[in-house]
Amino acid sequence: MSEVRLQIDGKEVRAEEGATILETARAAGIEIPTLCLHEALEPFGGCRLCVVEVEAGGWSRLVVSCVYTVAEGLVVRTRNKKIDRTRKMLLELLLAHAPDSPPLQELAAEYGADRDRFGQETSFCVHCGLCVRYCAEVKGLHAVGFIDRGIRKEISFLPEIAAKECRDCMECFPLCPTSYLQAAFVLVEAFTSR
């Protein structure tokens, strides 16, 4: 693996080819917010909070740093007006679902996001997919999955698998940035133990 040199927030850094901007920035002590990222899981690219601006060959654009890989001579900015504006809006959209989520509140304070900008949604789930992906990728159980698409997308436990596997595992519970997951499971459990 060869090494590439790039610039993040004005700082010259080196990284292995194939590394993501996010990994490289964090190694250099530059923090980028994330929600759907987990070190044991494949990058998902869903929450988009880790957007950064990249500049190469005279053009610049926003990319998500959890999947965008480094390249020689790349110039990266992790904060500017546009990035902050984007993160603020993303947070406001998420807060409509989970206004009391601690990690979201923390980020909201940082980016000045208004938790009441949009009306409260009925579902708490922010679709980070951590539970679904952890159960599939780490545990190989597939006890929880997505259903539907678009604005109707939800997560859902499969009662027949959950009844067998979940009570002894529950490793996904602490991953959930809202309280939604636990609620969903409790519901299924109540339903299946009837």
């Binding site: 679904v132 599939a136 597939h142 006890a143 929880v144 999955g145 997505f146 259903i147 539907d148 698409r149 859902s156 499969l158 027949e160 698998i161």
Partner: peptide, 12 residues
């Protein structure tokens, strides 16, 4: 195929 994926596909 895990039933969870079948469930997603048939609703997606």
């Amino acid at each position: 195929v895990p039933p969870a994926l079948v469930q997603h596909i048939t609703t997606f």
